[in-house]
């Protein structure tokens, strides 16, 4: 039963730029929240501040109402899993897991019991005697997770824990971690720059850029209704087309879309799967390349001024390079001054 509360936290590194800029977030009990952003967006710094490895310049961090903002890591009820797993290579798996329990002066028999239980939980029962260097990358990361879980932290912090693993393993561990997290109902903050990871694991996603929150929402909402052009461009594939609106019509080259907003510049955002193509006598774009993925096809198109847009089609074999087509957006959004001002 733990809630994390981050209020107006700012972290400035020497040099003057704000790594994290008045950031606020509430994580509910048992919730898994992903901090998603490109490198340099401040997501790792934020996580390290929750873990106690960085001190914020201002703002407050509380866990279950208790202020921890300036406590050192060893006095926080948080458990961190590092990207590089950071296992202690001079200890075997058992000792890695038992170290924290020993510091808490737990009796040896109880330590053994707890360590075995948590090894079972992460699917490594019987691996206690192995040296950590003898384990595969996935196993090492499981041990790192177990090392945090065995202490029953109130908040679990995951700092790109799968970044060094290959794609296949990453997907499997992702599911395992999500299962464990839901079974233990442990409040979790997860940092990643991989949108797949965020979309598949998170209860809510915080999209960050330049130390600031761009959007906080459920994964499906972040994908379907990005509130800023940055989020639109960062999550999934998105056609972001700059243009001018006059008299309720958005114009870019030969592409015109009815857009009932005030005149002025605007950015039109259309998902490839929401952009239909049709044969036309007055084509608005020409097919540049057709890529057939089997289940669907992806078509690169050029507007007359060279602007590249993408469309996802069910039957790519109907299209050839050089062919002229009409563009029919089914759903789109428009942005002005970094804000969404229209959504169809």
């Amino acid at each position: 039963m733990s809630v994390l509360h981050i209020a107006d936290v700012t972290k400035t590194f020497s040099g003057g730029t704000n790594a994290v800029d008045s950031f606020s977030l509430d994580v509910a009990d048992g919730e898994l929240v992903c901090l998603l952003g490109p490198s340099g967006s401040g997501k790792s710094t934020l996580l390290r501040m929750v873990g106690g490895f960085e001190q914020p310049n201002s703002g407050r961090i509380t866990i279950d109402g208790e202020e921890v903002t300036h406590l050192p890591p060893e006095r926080r009820p948080t458990g961190m899993v590092f990207q590089s797993h950071a296992l202690w290579t001079h200890m075997n798996v058992f000792k890695n897991l038992a170290f924290g329990l020993k510091l808490r002066r737990m009796p040896a028999a109880q330590i053994r019991e707890k360590v075995e239980a948590v090894l079972e939980l992460v699917g490594l029962a019987g691996y206690g005697d192995r040296m950590t260097t003898q384990l595969s990358g996935g196993q090492q990361q499981r041990v790192a997770l177990a090392r945090s879980l065995v202490l029953e932290p109130k908040i679990l912090l995951l700092d790109e824990p799968f970044a060094s693993l290959d794609q296949h393993l990453r997907e499997r561990l992702r599911e395992e971690v999500r299962d464990i997290q839901q079974r233990l109902k442990i409040t979790t903050l997860f940092v990643t720059h991989g949108q797949d990871e965020a979309l598949s694991m998170a209860d809510r996603i915080v999209v960050m850029a330049n130390g600031k929150t761009e959007q906080i929402d459920r994964p499906d909402v972040v994908y379907r209704d990005p509130k800023t052009p940055f989020v639109a461009g960062f999550i999934g594939t998105m056609n972001l087309i700059e243009g001018e609106v006059s008299n309720g019509i958005f114009v870019r080259s030969a592409l015109t879309v009815p857009l009932p907003i005030a005149d002025g510049p605007a950015t039109l955002a259309i998902r490839p799967e929401a952009l239909d193509l049709s044969a036309s006598d007055i084509p608005k774009a020409s097919v540049h390349r057709v890529t057939d993925y089997g289940s669907h096809g992806l078509v690169d198109l050029d507007l007359a001024d060279g602007t590249r847009v993408k469309s996802m089609v069910a039957h790519p074999d109907m299209l050839r390079a050089g062919q002229g087509v009409d563009l029919l957006p089914r759903a789109f959004a428009a942005y002005r001054n970094n804000q969404q001002i229209y959504r169809s």
Binding site: G52, P73, E74, M80, A86, L87, F99, G100, S148
Partner: peptide
């Protein structure tokens, strides 16, 4: 850092 995290001074 991991050692600090599990409670070591």
């Amino acid at each position: 850092e991991a050692a600090r995290d599990v409670g070591a001074s």
